[in-house]
Simulated scan of single mutants.
Amino acid sequence: MTVVMAEDLDPSSADAGVPVHYGDPMREQRVLATAVGLVDRSNRDVIAVPGEERASWLHTLTTQHLSDLSANQGSELLVLSPHGHVEQHAYVTEDGTTAWLDTEPGAGAGLLKYLEMMRFFTRVEPRDASKEIAALSVVGPGAADLFPGLAAPRVSPVPGAKFAAGEVPGHATSVYDVTPFEGGLARRVPLGVDLLVPREAKTSVIEKLGVPLAGLWAYEAIRVEHRIPRLGWETDHRTIPAEADFVATAVHLDKGCYRGQETVARVHHLGRPPRRLVLLHLDGVATDQPPAKGAPVVLGDREVGFVGTAVRHHELGLVALAVLKRNVADDAELRVGESAAAIEAA
C-alpha cells in the first residue's frame, strides 16, 4: 500500500505525522462519503484534566456550559482572548475521572499554558497527554453501525438575537455520546466517531476495526463539504466565534461570566458579526491546484477575506472554506488568485 505522509509533501506541514493519502485520494473520499473509513489523526494534541473540580473549573474558563457534563459525554469549547477573539478550540470528553481535551496539532502547548495559569487553588492537575493518547476518526454514514450504542450528536438551536434570560437550556449546547473502547474512548460526532485510544494500541485498534484507511486529505474534503471550521485554518488572530460558525457547537450564550463573554453577547444581540464563513466554488480553469491557506479573496480590486481550507472534492471539484466580510453579497464575482470563485448559499 502506498502511504504518503504530510511531511513527505511539505516538511513544514502543520499536519506532519499522519498520512494524507494511501495512493488514491478521490477513492478515499468516496469511501468516507458513502460508506465508512478510518482516518489517522494521531498528531492531534491531547490535554488530560483530572481532579474533582475539573467540570466547574472548565465551565468558568471556557465558552461552553460544562458544570454538569456527565461521565461518557463530550462537547466542544473555546478559549477566548479578553476581547473575544478565538484563541483555542478543543473537544472535551469526560470519562468520570478525567476530562480529555483534544485540539489541533501544535495548539496543545498554548492551551495547557493557559490552563496552568488559571489553576490557582483549584483541585485539578492538567497535563500534556499527547504521548499517551492517539486520536483516530471513523468517518462516514456507516460509522454509527460500528458503534450502535452511541446516540447521535445533540446540538441545541442557537437562540435569536434578543432571546430572554433562561431560554437557553442549562447544559452544553453540543452533547456527544461517549463509550469506553479498547482502553480509551469512542465519541460520536457529526462526521462519525472519534476515538481516543492508548497510543501503543493504535495499530491493534485499526486492525480490529477492519475498515478501509483514508488519508487526511479525504477527511478534510468531507469537513469542508460540511462547513466544519478548523482552528488556525478558518480562524485568524481577530476571529470571533460567530464569524467561524463556532456558536452552535462550542458556545453557550446564557451562562456565567468567562473571558471574552462581553464581545460574544454584544455581537450576538446585534446579530451582525463583521465576517462570515462561506463555502466557495473555484472554477479550476486557470489552475486545478487548491489555493494555499490564507490566500486572499478579492472582489474587484478589494480584498474581502481569506481562504481557510481548500480541497479538491470528489463531487464538488475545487472548493474552499473562506471567511469573508459580512457585506459581500452571495452573488458577488470573486477571485482567488487566478480562479473565479462563487459563494454557495448556506
Rank of each mutant, 00 (worst) to 15 (best):
R30Y: 02
V31W: 09
H59S: 10
T60G: 15
N72H: 14
L66K: 00
S56H: 06
A71Y: 11
E52P: 13
L58H: 01
S67E: 14
L69V: 05
M26S: 04
A35I: 11
T34W: 08
A48P: 08
W57K: 05
D45L: 02
H65T: 06
M26H: 12
A33E: 14
P25R: 01
D45I: 02
I47A: 06
L69N: 00
T34N: 08
V39M: 05
S42M: 08
R30E: 07
D68F: 12
G51L: 08
E53D: 11
A71P: 09
V46N: 03
L66P: 01
A35G: 07
P50V: 04
A35E: 10
W57G: 00
S42T: 15
V39Y: 01
A71N: 06
Q64F: 13
L58M: 08
E53T: 12
A48M: 13
L69P: 00
V36R: 02
T62K: 02
E52Y: 03
Q29A: 04
G51C: 07
T62A: 06
A55W: 09
D40C: 14
T62R: 00
H65C: 13
A35R: 09
W57H: 11
I47Q: 03
H59R: 11
V36S: 01
T60H: 12
L58E: 01
P25N: 00
E52W: 07
E53L: 10
G37M: 13
N43M: 07
R41P: 03
G51T: 14
R41E: 12
R27M: 08
V49F: 00
V46C: 07
M26L: 09
S70R: 13
E52N: 07
G51Q: 08
